[in-house]
């Protein structure tokens, strides 16, 4: 499943990014890498971005990018 499919308050683990080097690098800069645990805090309406928390930082991820991020549910 992708990050985009995860519901609000879900706790997931990042398992892969199906994007080019640029997308992976950008995610890395925000401190998001394969294996990280992510909490989805809230989603903006009208197909807007997701706000998630990873390692204490809140990050907004646009829907297109969220569809490229593969995650698996934790717990």
């Amino acid at each position: 499943m992708t990050l985009y499919d995860a519901g609000e308050q879900a706790v997931v683990r990042l398992v892969g990014v199906s994007g080019g080097w640029g997308a992976r690098q950008h995610l890395r800069e925000m401190g998001l890498q394969v294996g990280d645990a992510i909490v989805i805090l809230r989603r903006a309406p009208f197909g807007g971005p997701l706000a998630l928390r990873s390692r204490g930082a809140v990050i907004a991820v646009g829907r297109e990018l969220a569809k490229k991020i593969r995650v698996e549910p934790l717990k």
Binding site: H26, M30, V58, E64
Partner: peptide, 10 residues
């Protein structure tokens, strides 16, 4: 572009 990705500072 891949879309938005930004830090939301506290």
């Amino acid at each position: 572009s891949p879309g938005m990705l930004m830090e939301v500072p506290s």
